Simulated assay, not measured.
Amino acid sequence: MNDMKAVKNLLYRIGAEAVNEVKELAPIGKGDGKSYRGGNLKKDIQVFDDNIDNLEVSIGNSKLAPYAKFVHCGTKPHKIQAKNKRALKTPFGVRKSVKHPGTKAQPYLEDGLKKYMSSGGLDRALNDTAHEIKDEFIDALKKSLKNATIK
C-alpha cells in the first residue's frame, strides 16, 4: 500500500464511520402512510468519495432527499402560494396561500460528526492507519535488507 492509498483509505474510513454516527442522530419523519414513509432522510445519508483524489471526503444526503437542507438548517417563516393548482388543501380548508411558521434546524450532520470526533473515532482511525503504514514500512525495509548485497 502506498502512502496516498493509505490516506485515501483513511479518509473513506472516517467518512463511513461518521455516517454511522450521523444516521443515529438523523430525524425520522412521520410520513403519510401512503406516498411517503418516514426514514428516507436517514437511509439516504452516505459518503461521497468522488473528490477523494483531492484528499477530501464528504458526507450528506443525495438528491434523493432534496429536503435534507431544510431539515438540517431549518426554515424561516414563509408564505406558500398555490402554483399549479388554484388552491391548497389545508386542515383549515382550501386556501390560495398559507403562512408557514418555519421549522427549527436539526443539524444532524454536524451533531453526528461532533459525536464521532468526541467518541475517539478519529483518533482510532488515525492510530490504526499509522500502525498499518509502520508495519508496511518495516516489512518493506526487511525485504530490502534481505535482498541487499554488500560491495
Score class of each variant (00 low, 15 high):
residue 1 M to D: 11
residue 1 M to A: 11
residue 3 D to T: 06
residue 3 D to I: 05
residue 3 D to P: 08
residue 4 M to P: 06
residue 4 M to F: 11
residue 8 K to P: 00
residue 8 K to G: 00
residue 9 N to A: 11
residue 9 N to Y: 01
residue 11 L to R: 00
residue 13 R to Y: 01
residue 14 I to T: 02
residue 15 G to L: 00
residue 16 A to H: 03
residue 16 A to P: 01
residue 18 A to L: 02
residue 18 A to F: 01
residue 20 N to V: 02
residue 21 E to K: 09
residue 22 V to L: 01
residue 23 K to L: 05
residue 30 K to R: 12
residue 30 K to F: 07
residue 31 G to H: 07
residue 33 G to R: 11
residue 34 K to I: 08
residue 35 S to Q: 13
residue 36 Y to D: 07
residue 37 R to Q: 11
residue 37 R to E: 10
residue 39 G to A: 10
residue 41 L to D: 00
residue 43 K to W: 10
residue 43 K to A: 15
residue 43 K to P: 04
residue 43 K to E: 15
residue 44 D to M: 09
residue 46 Q to V: 07
residue 47 V to Q: 12
residue 48 F to V: 04
residue 49 D to H: 08
residue 50 D to M: 12
residue 50 D to I: 06
residue 50 D to C: 07
residue 51 N to Y: 08
residue 51 N to P: 01
residue 52 I to V: 13
residue 53 D to Y: 07
residue 54 N to R: 14
residue 55 L to S: 07
residue 57 V to G: 01
residue 59 I to L: 09
residue 60 G to D: 08
residue 61 N to H: 04
residue 61 N to Q: 11
residue 62 S to H: 13
residue 65 A to H: 07
residue 66 P to L: 05
residue 67 Y to T: 04
residue 68 A to I: 01
residue 69 K to C: 05
residue 69 K to V: 08
residue 72 H to I: 04
residue 72 H to M: 06
residue 72 H to C: 04
residue 75 T to Q: 08
residue 75 T to A: 09
residue 75 T to N: 08
residue 76 K to D: 12
residue 76 K to H: 11
residue 77 P to L: 09
residue 78 H to T: 06
residue 78 H to K: 12
residue 78 H to L: 10
residue 81 Q to S: 11
residue 82 A to V: 03
residue 82 A to Q: 05
residue 83 K to W: 06
residue 86 R to L: 07
residue 87 A to N: 13
residue 87 A to Q: 14
residue 87 A to D: 14
residue 88 L to W: 04
residue 88 L to Q: 03
residue 90 T to P: 09
residue 91 P to K: 05
residue 94 V to A: 10
residue 96 K to T: 10
residue 96 K to V: 01
residue 97 S to F: 12
residue 98 V to L: 09
residue 98 V to Q: 03
residue 99 K to R: 15
residue 101 P to R: 12
residue 103 T to V: 14
residue 104 K to L: 10
residue 104 K to S: 15
residue 104 K to D: 15
residue 104 K to V: 12
residue 106 Q to L: 12
residue 106 Q to Y: 09
residue 107 P to I: 05
residue 107 P to T: 02
residue 108 Y to N: 02
residue 108 Y to R: 05
residue 110 E to Q: 13
residue 111 D to F: 12
residue 112 G to N: 05
residue 113 L to H: 02
residue 114 K to H: 07
residue 116 Y to E: 00
residue 117 M to N: 03
residue 118 S to F: 10
residue 118 S to G: 05
residue 118 S to L: 09
residue 119 S to N: 13
residue 120 G to M: 04
residue 121 G to N: 06
residue 121 G to Q: 05
residue 122 L to K: 02
residue 123 D to G: 08
residue 123 D to L: 10
residue 124 R to G: 02
residue 124 R to K: 15
residue 126 L to D: 03
residue 126 L to N: 10
residue 127 N to G: 08
residue 131 H to V: 02
residue 132 E to P: 00
residue 132 E to A: 03
residue 134 K to F: 11
residue 137 F to N: 08
residue 137 F to P: 04
residue 139 D to Y: 09
residue 140 A to R: 15
residue 142 K to G: 09
residue 142 K to C: 04
residue 144 S to A: 12
residue 146 K to I: 04
residue 146 K to W: 13
residue 147 N to K: 14
residue 148 A to D: 11
residue 149 T to W: 12
residue 149 T to H: 15
residue 150 I to P: 05
residue 150 I to C: 12
residue 150 I to Q: 14
